[in-house]
Design a protein around this nucleic acid. Structure first.
Length: 1098
RNA sequence: GCCGGAGUGGCGAAAUGGCAGACGCGUCGGAUUCAAAAUCCGAUACCCCUUAAAGGUGUGAGGGUUCAAGUCCCUCCUCCGGCACCA
């Protein structure tokens, strides 16, 4: 007999039979959940007061728990989205119950493309779409029972919010980076207000870039000087222009095959005047400050790689009659091996230096499709540029064949005054370093390939120690051109044995060769057993036997090595190493590791025999002294492109006067509101060269404005670009702290309180970066949001607006929820929830069945991937909440596995957590009457022990956010209990431990069981979490396994806490143990008190 | 190619160097029921065996360290993620 409304299919939540009106089923879960969600809201259970506000308790420690800012999508959430939200909610509830002031809320990153796209299609204003979406999402989130402070919720599209986004932009605009003069200094510099820059110029403390005295400069010159230093500035730069999206994109938003991350449209490089953020000033700090953050190591590595710090030197190569070419290298120690120079095809000097002749050269002048030796150098350069420009990013990445052309010009290597040819080639990138390199083919893979393609010389300047030894031997053993002795291979092998031994690094080659030669005539006493000790070759290798035998073995190894090097004979070796310096060419591969400098001496300096790092130091110092270069650190990170040609974003608080000069608006004029528009269409185009016009250009009466900026009312035009999506998410976590403050983006005292670092005894102020205590989100934001937000935060820190140098102290990346997806014959994804098996049953309900699968009568193929819209395999949380209740959904999502792991969704598995809740309910509640049938009194010893053991591990695992094991421990405890027999002490503790995980049921049980259904129903969100009594958790007796030879054979029962000797005695006294070792000799007994005994037999 | 992460029953997964597979799903058996669903109880890594006992094997592969390895070290394979001519 079933209740009509619940007569679902077999896997649906249990029906509430008429005879059991209070069985925990889908309907009861719904009732309980909405009832408590209402109570929480009306009683304002989760409001977290700020210091000074009513209800604030200064005695408690604070915790700021944060979820990554979601975009309110129109299609609603799927069960993958709330995974992190549920986890943070559980953790926040746990913290609340363990005596913390917890700030946890949720807002919306609501500017962005989908709402605008929808507006373009339907004409509905994006604000309306956005507000609808936010409403839907809030309702969905509410149904999950998340304990957020609703007063703190903000949306980036709120004018009261974006007023402050604009204000922060102005802080950045009105700041410059005061970098220390010495780049190696520990002081990394900081942002300062522009005002201080002007003061320094006025005082003459700082020299202007143009070289003129400040007082002698015109207004326009002064403005140019300042504008060139602002942290937010406009520049004509080659940008990623995506004509289909009608906007430019940041580097981070372009995929490696040159398409837009959003929409997968082609992206073109095109010079445009754009707003930029000088994030590169912070590259060093952004990289270094990662060290003290409690973030997953993988994310730190991702960010470090993205910032791409590399340290080396700039080297100036003179060019006769022209400006010198500056290259950047990370290997200044290889400067003597630079045999040519390569410029990127778009390097500004290319046109200047390429010559109009057709020189005869020992190398090939041009290698690329269409190369023609009848061309002059200049013609070849032009042809090559055309060819390289036509290559897409994808072509460049895939095609590893090196191409390039000779410019006809030569540069002078400062270290040896050698003339080296200058090439252009597209393997050198314009945007990195100086857009020019010195090529050291012997020690760089790419240069090696290019040199081979162009038949350029390859000269070794770094050898590993053995090759350096051979070089010495080739030179000194028989004179520079003497005949080798008959035993040269044996001598060399012995010398290599000595020279490669670390303890001989201080010995000169001469001395070692001497040892080799005298030893050959020394009779070695054949004394077996003489193993270690001081021998001429230092500590011997591990080969057993006599010294003579060991020498023989070492020599044999080195003889084989010599044979494998590919030298035909001694003279061949001498030719490659000593005369031609082209061993790497012979080997067919560049040697890119550090080693020892060779062939690196000139009239200016000599670094031979120095290890690579020392040689690099020496050469860099020489470059600096002689004015030919300087130490340098460069970064892959580019300045952040901050303009978008879209409607639905924050307007810039910037206007231009009739001369096109930018003026920032005063704070009193904020916010600059978005104008109303009818047509939101960006001017998308398939033509990469189409003119760029933004939607805001169409709001003529908004663009043209008359303002008084301090010098009377004048006409201005407004900036018509908008800010990128990332702007709001760079600082939203600060607005949560003080969401309605009209006077400031965030009150300073409030900011100090919530953003202060979590105190650890071992941490000094330097290693305590402070910030949000826990930030949970997906790994996809590793380099975009997390880098931009850190950058803004550091600027705000430098300018004194926030108190910590870092925004997010601890970061946690939750894994994805994955699911099966299905493709039809055309390769198009179909709705996964409609795919059936051959017998007509839904594939979703039988995930272990291998198929075949059908959709709409057609066979489809199965794949597996991240749940989402694109794979059409999303499962909605609302459906699950309706069938089982959100408490079950919460438990299921937590019990799937570790939070950080990606794991497959399997609807069928939800029954497990659901049954757990049902059993727990039944254990405490009479399903007939709905009243508590918990008995008064205290549980028996065994149950009490189980309870306290559970409390111990639940607390530990909650702390570690290991919620999957928390769930299983509670299930285990519950499985010991029976309906109507649970005592109040156990029931109480059980309910409290359940409260963070399944808060609705916990509150309901508390009311029915503990309050006995009397009085106002009140939430237990602020009750104290159970504390274990270690005495009660103690065992009377424990079982200790006895292993023989590492294999468990038997177990004995003993009282806990036995010392090793006692445990051993107990084990040996056991008759079964005696039987196991009967007739055998016990060699050793390993005893781990409380754990195990292992008997080692002969 | 480089940098990360991961490989444990039919499935999701547990396991401070100390009894591998907790807990859940599924499956099988039983109880309850006129019957079914739901619920409850029991079994469930594999091999040998009628069964049980006893034994053996087993954490991607191969080596090593250790009294003892899923866990530590080395080599390799597979999958997932990121970067990719960054000088």
């Amino acid at each position: 007999m079933t209740t009509p409304g619940n007569a679902g299919s077999a896997h649906h939540a249990t029906a509430t039979g008429d005879h059991l009106p209070y069985r925990y089923g889908s309907a009861l879960a719904q009732t309980i959940e909405s009832r408590w969600q209402d109570i929480w809201e009306s009683r304002r259970v989760f409001e977290a007061p700020n210091p000074g506000q009513p209800g604030f308790d200064a005695a408690k420690a604070k915790k700021y728990i944060l979820d990554m800012f979601p975009y309110p999508s129109g299609v609603g959430l799927h069960v993958g989205h709330p995974l992190g939200y549920i986890a943070t909610d559980i953790f926040a509830r746990f913290l609340r119950m363990t005596g913390h002031n917890v700030l946890h809320t949720m807002g919306f990153d609501s500017f962005g493309l989908p709402a605008e796209q929808y507006a373009v299609q339907t004409g509905q204003h994006p604000r309306i779409t956005t507000e609808n979406n936010i409403r839907t999402m809030k309702a969905q989130l509410r149904r999950l029972g998340l304990g957020h402070d609703p007063r703190r919720s903000v949306s980036t599209t709120d004018t009261a919010f974006y007023k402050w986004t604009q204000w922060i932009f102005l802080q950045i605009y009105n700041a410059w980076y005061d970098a220390p003069l010495d780049p190696a200094s520990r002081d990394k510099g900081r942002a300062r207000p522009i005002r201080e820059l002007v003061e320094r110029f006025e005082r003459g403390d700082m020299l202007t870039a143009c070289g003129k005295a400040w007082a002698a400069m015109t207004d326009a010159e002064r403005r140019a000087e300042i504008d060139a230093r602002r942290l937010a500035f406009r520049a004509e730069v080659p940008v990623n222009w995506c004509p289909m999206l009608g906007t430019v994109l940041a580097n981070e938003e372009v995929t490696s095959d040159g398409r837009s991350e959003r929409g997968n449209f082609p992206v073109y490089k095109r010079p445009l005047k754009q707003w930029m953020m000088r994030i590169t000033c912070y590259a060093d700090r952004l990289s270094e400050d990662l060290e003290h953050l409690d973030w997953p190591e993988a994310i730190k590595i991702l960010q470090r790689n993205w910032i791409g710090r590399s340290s080396g030197a700039y080297v100036h190569f003179r060019v006769e009659g022209r400006d010198p070419i500056t290259v950047f290298t990370t290997r200044p120690d290889t400067l003597f091996g630079a045999t040519y120079i390569v410029l990127s095809p778009d390097h500004p000097l290319v046109n200047v230096i390429s010559t109009a002749d057709r020189p005869k050269t020992s190398f090939r002048r041009a290698v690329f499709p269409g190369a023609d030796d009848r061309m002059t150098c200049r013609e070849a350069v032009a042809a090559y540029r055309l060819y390289a420009g036509g290559k897409s990013e994808a072509d460049r990445a895939s095609g590893k064949d090196k191409t390039g052309v000779f410019t006809g010009a030569y540069a002078i290597n400062p270290v040896n005054d050698e003339h080296v040819p200058i090439f252009i080639a597209d393997y050198v990138l314009g945007g990195y370093g100086t857009g020019a390199i010195m090529a050291v083919p012997a020690h760089d893979d790419r240069d090696f390939e290019f040199a081979q393609a162009m038949k350029l010389p390859i000269r070794d300047v770094v050898y590993p120690r053995p090759i350096e030894t051979m070089l010495y031997f080739a030179k000194a053993a028989y004179g520079e051109d003497g005949e080798p002795g008959p035993n040269w291979r044996d001598e060399l092998a012995d010398l290599l044995g000595l020279a490669t031994n670390a303890s001989n690094s201080h010995q000169s080659f001469d001395a070692m060769l001497d040892i080799v030669r005298t030893r050959r005539f020394t009779v070695v006493p054949e004394t077996p057993g003489m193993v270690a000790g001081a021998t001429p070759e230092g500590p011997a290798c591990d080969v057993p036997g006599s010294l003579g035998q060991r020498r023989g073995t070492m020599r044999a190894v080195w003889l084989e090595t010599i044979d494998n090097l590919g030298f035909m004979n001694f003279n061949d070796m001498r030719r490659h190493l000593l005369v031609e310096h082209n061993y790497q060419l012979l080997r067919g591969q560049a040697f890119t590791e550090p080693g020892v400098a060779v062939h690196s001496a000139s009239a200016h300096l000599d670094v031979n025999h120095l290890p690579s790092d020392k040689a690099a130091d020496r050469i860099t110092k020489w470059l600096e002294h002689s004015g030919h270069g300087a130490h340098a650190t460069t970064y892959k990170l580019r300045d952040w492109l901050f303009s978008r040609q879209r409607y639905w974003g924050e307007p810039f608080p910037i206007v231009y006067d009739k001369d096109g000069v930018a003026h920032d608006l005063p704070e009193a004029m904020l916010p600059v509101l978005l104008p109303e528009l009818k047509d939101f269409q960006p001017e998308s185009s398939t033509d990469p060269d189409a003119p760029v016009r933004t939607p805001l250009n169409r709001a003529a009466e908004w663009v043209e404005c008359e303002l008084d900026l301090g010098n009377g009312r004048r006409r201005y035009t407004r900036e018509t670009n908008t800010m990128p999506n990332w702007a709001g998410s760079c600082w939203y976590y600060l607005r949560y702290l003080d969401p309605v403050n009209a006077a400031s983006f965030c009150d300073s005292a409030v900011e100090h309180y919530w953003m202060a670092g979590t105190q650890h005894a071992a941490q000094t102020p330097l290693t305590r970066p402070g910030g949000v205590d826990l930030y949970v989100g997906g790994v996809e934001h590793a380099v975009l949001h997390l880098l931009y937000a850190r950058f803004w935060h550091k600027v705000l820190f430098d300018l004194g607006h926030v108190s910590t140098p870092e925004p997010f102290q601890k970061l946690f990346n939750q894994g994805y929820i994955q699911a099966y997806a299905y493709k039809d014959a055309r390769g198009i994804y179909v709705d996964a929830d409609k795919v059936t098996l051959a017998d007509g049953s839904l594939a979703m309900d039988n995930q272990d069945k291998p198929g075949p699968f059908f959709f709409d009568g057609q066979e489809v193929t199965r794949e597996y991937g991240k749940m989402g819209k694109s794979l059409r395999n999303a499962v909605g949380p609302d459906d699950i909440c309706t069938q089982y209740g959100c408490d079950t959904l919460r438990l299921y999502e937590m019990s799937m596995g570790p939070l950080e792991a990606s794991k497959p969704w399997n609807t069928r598995d939800i029954a497990g957590p659901f049954r757990f809740l049902q059993r727990l309910w039944r254990n405490l509640i009479d399903e007939q009457t709905g009243a508590s049938h918990v008995v008064d009194g205290v549980a028996d010893r065994d149950t009490l022990r189980a309870l306290h053991k559970t409390i111990i591990v639940v607390r530990r695992d909650m702390q570690a956010m290991s919620f999957n094991t928390v769930v299983s421990k509670l299930i285990e405890l519950n499985n010991r209990l029976s309906p109507g027999k649970v005592t109040m002490d156990v029931a109480r503790a059980m309910i409290l431990m359940l409260a963070p995980l399944a808060p609705h049921m916990a509150d309901e049980l508390w009311y029915r069981v503990v309050c006995k259904g009397m009085g106002e129903p009140l939430s237990i969100a602020h009750e104290a979490f159970p504390v274990a009594d270690p005495e009660l958790a103690k065992d009377d007796e424990i079982e200790v396994p006895i292993s023989v030879m590492g294999r468990p054979r038997h177990r004995i029962r003993v009282v806990p806490g036995l010392a090793a000797a006692e445990l051993e005695a107990a084990a040996m006294a056991d008759p079964k143990v005696q039987e196991l070792i009967a007739g055998k000799v016990v060699k050793k007994i390993v005893v781990v008190p409380g754990k195990m005994v292992n008997l080692v037999l002969e």
